[in-house]
Design a binder for these strands. Structure first.
Lengths: 161, 161
DNA sequence: TTCTAATGTAATCGC
DNA sequence: GCGATTACATTAGT
């Protein structure tokens, strides 16, 4: 496919098998790595331990691909037992937000303190601040984009008349 | 002389947790975080641009009101801020489903390809696959639940006689 | 009503 | 820690 053929018409890209399977580009080097799941211990050590991962991994990732040729990799060992999503209460969010206004990079001691106060694990706090910073960054990027766009519109308007 | 005077309080830290928690909920001049609404650019850059986001955030909250008039549904402000629901055609669904059978995690290149073919935005494709995966997972959970329930019933039946 | 497109965000992985 | 991506819970449109 990649070889140059003497064709008058260059065909558009086609649904190749590789592409549909998400295999185009590279081959899978799927070494199943056991992810870090500390909270699983409590609830699932009764079942046959050998089938737990082989089965699950397979059924979720038998179609999982390698880094696609022109973009990102979704070649992660697909989440086997993902931590149950934490639902923060309104009061917790309120506190976290107010801290965030003052310090968006709380050190370990402040995080521990918060964890104690809010009755959350320190890990949840850390993740929350990470995601919160990402959100802030997104919003900044977006408003910047809008401002640039608007500036261009204004230029156009002025030039047009 | 050698011993320092006993002071009841000597505080150097200003931002203690207590302090931060003490003023919770009062003056958070939080910069309103803007949601990601790329499609607004295309259709509403003529209107007064300064009110665009202030309006939209609140209208999500109390949007659960009746339309003032049925004919103007689309133009009323409770709709602002949410992408109009995409209605896929049967043919589009058919293709998407057939791809999904093979690969439920299409990479960016396959998604772009699909987008071109089906005349959809790549984002619609991505969201579709996300929702489709969620649906599959739901159905798996449900059937598993049924199987477990049935197994229990059988146990009961056998034990009961 | 049911199903599902869209949204927000917690959790995950790789760097 | 960050960027990218996913899963999950929820809202809302048809």
């Amino acid at each position: 496919m990649s070889s140059t053929a003497v064709r008058p018409v260059e065909r558009k890209t086609v649904f190749t098998i590789e592409r549909i399977l998400g295999l185009d580009g590279k081959e899978q080097s799927t070494v199943p790595v056991k992810p870090h799941r500390p909270w699983i211990d409590a609830c699932s050590n009764l079942v046959g331990s050998e089938s737990q991962f082989t089965q699950e991994t397979k059924c979720k990732q038998d179609s999982c691909d390698r880094p696609a040729s022109d973009s990102y990799k979704r070649t992660l060992n697909w989440y086997i037992g993902r931590r149950p999503r934490t639902a923060f209460t309104g009061a917790q969010i309120e506190i976290l937000e107010s801290i965030f206004q003052i310090n968006s990079y709380p050190g370990i001691d402040l995080r521990e303190e918060l964890a104690k106060r809010l009755e959350l694990e320190e890990d949840r706090i850390q993740i929350w601040f990470q995601n919160r910073r990402a959100k802030l960054k997104r919003s900044h990027r977006e408003s910047q984009f809008l401002m640039v766009k608007r500036a261009f519109s204004n230029l156009h308007d002025q030039a047009g008349h």
